[in-house]
C-alpha cells in the first residue's frame, strides 16, 4: 500500500497537538520552574539552580521537614494498603470464580459497585461513620458496651479509617482484573492437576498463580502508584491529622504552591516525588520480569 505522508500526519496531528500542549509543555515548564525562585502571585524571581532541591533534601528547613514527613506517611500508606488491595482483591476474585452462574454476576457487581462512588462521597460517608464523638461506629460500639475510639484523631485508628475507605472504594477494580485473568486460565490444567491429586492450595500455587502472574504484577504496580497518589481521602477525612501524620505528598505539594505561594519549591517537590515513583515502579517491574524468566 502506498500511503501519503500528509494523510498519515493529519491523522496523528490531533493527538500530537493535545500531547504537546498538555503534556510536553507542562512537563518542561514544571522542571524549568523548579530551578527558579518562583511565586504564584509574583512570578519568576530569578534562577536558583538546584537550591530548591537542596533545601528539600538537607535537614534544617520546614520544606525538608514537611516533605520527609509526607514521604514517610505516603510510603507507610503504600505499605499498609498493598496487602488488602491486592491479596484481598485476589481472594474476592477467587471466591467469585467459584460461585455458580447468575449469582456470580450479582456478587461481582456488588463488590465492584463502590468504585462508581466518587472519592469525595466516599470520604463524606466514612468521615461521618468514623466520627469520634457521636459517630455511627462509636455509637454501635457503645451499644455493645465497648469503649468508643477516637478514630479520626489518634493513630493507628486514623490510618485504619482511611484504609477502610480506600479498600471499600477501590478493591473492586483490582478484583475485576483478577476475575478476568482467572477466566482465561486453561481448564485442562486444573483437570491435569486434579488427576495428580493436588489439593486446593497446590492447585492454586502450581496452576492458577503462574497463569495470572502477569496480571498480578500489573495489579501490584498500579496499586502502588494509586496509593502513592493518596490525596482526597486524607484531605477530606482527616485533613492530614492528627499532628500531620496522614499528610500525603500531594497535599504538601499543593500547600507549598498555593498556601505558601512558593511555586518553585512545590515544583521541585513534585519532580522529586515523580522520580521516587519512577524508581519504585522500575524496581517492581524488574522484580516481576526477572521472576518471569526463572519461572
Amino acid at each position: 500500500m502506498k500511503i501519503s505522508k500528509t494523510v498519515s500526519t493529519l491523522m496523528f496531528l490531533p493527538f500530537l497537538l493535545f500531547f504537546v500542549l498538555f503534556w510536553i509543555i507542562p512537563f518542561v515548564y514544571g522542571i524549568y520552574v523548579s530551578f527558579h525562585n518562583w511565586t504564584v502571585s509574583g512570578g519568576n524571581n530569578g534562577f536558583v539552580g538546584l537550591d530548591n532541591y537542596i533545601r528539600i533534601l538537607t535537614p534544617g528547613s520546614m520544606y525538608h521537614d514537611s516533605f520527609m514527613n509526607a514521604l514517610g506517611n505516603t510510603l507507610y500508606f503504600v505499605g499498609i494498603s498493598l496487602v488488602p488491595l491486592v491479596v484481598f482483591a485476589l481472594l474476592l476474585a477467587l471466591l467469585i470464580e467459584n460461585i455458580p452462574g447468575k449469582l456470580k454476576v450479582v456478587f461481582r457487581t456488588i463488590f465492584f459497585i463502590s468504585y462508581a462512588v466518587s472519592v469525595t462521597a466516599v470520604s463524606a460517608i466514612f468521615k461521618w461513620l468514623f466520627t469520634g464523638n457521636g459517630g455511627y461506629i462509636n455509637n454501635v460500639l457503645q451499644t455493645f458496651g465497648l469503649d468508643s475510639i477516637r478514630w479520626l484523631n489518634t493513630q493507628p485508628y486514623a490510618w485504619i479509617a482511611i484504609l477502610a475507605a480506600t479498600v471499600w472504594w477501590t478493591i473492586g477494580y483490582n478484583m475485576i482484573l483478577f476475575v478476568n485473568a482467572l477466566d482465561e486460565v486453561d481448564e485442562s490444567l486444573y483437570e491435569a492437576a486434579a488427576l495428580d491429586g493436588a489439593n486446593a492450595w497446590q492447585r492454586f500455587w502450581n496452576v492458577t498463580f503462574p497463569s495470572i502472574k502477569g496480571v498480578f504484577v500489573f495489579v501490584v504496580i498500579i496499586t502502588v502508584i494509586a496509593s502513592f497518589n493518596l490525596y482526597g481521602q486524607t484531605l477530606l477525612i482527616t485533613e492530614g491529622g492528627p499532628a500531620r501524620s496522614t499528610m500525603s505528598l500531594t497535599m504538601i505539594i499543593q500547600n507549598t504552591i498555593f498556601s505558601q505561594n512558593n511555586l518553585g519549591m512545590g515544583s521541585a517537590m513534585a519532580v522529586l516525588m515523580g522520580i521516587i515513583m519512577v524508581f519504585i515502579t522500575g524496581i517492581q517491574y524488574m522484580i516481576g520480569f526477572r521472576k518471569d524468566e526463572n519461572g
Binding site: 466520627t131 469520634g132 464523638n133 457521636g134 462509636n138 455509637n139 457503645q142 451499644t143 468508643s148 477516637r150 479520626l152 484523631n153 489518634t154 485533613e239 491529622g241
Partner: peptide, 25 residues
C-alpha cells in the same frame, strides 16, 4: 471538656443529644 474531641469538636459536642440513643458527649 471531654477528652480528645476532634475537628470542630466544640460544635459537634454541643449538638449531641445525650438523652437520645447516642453515647456521645
Amino acid at each position: 471538656s471531654p477528652e480528645g474531641l476532634g475537628l470542630d469538636g466544640e460544635f459537634h459536642a454541643f449538638m449531641q443529644d445525650s438523652e437520645g440513643d447516642s453515647g456521645g458527649n
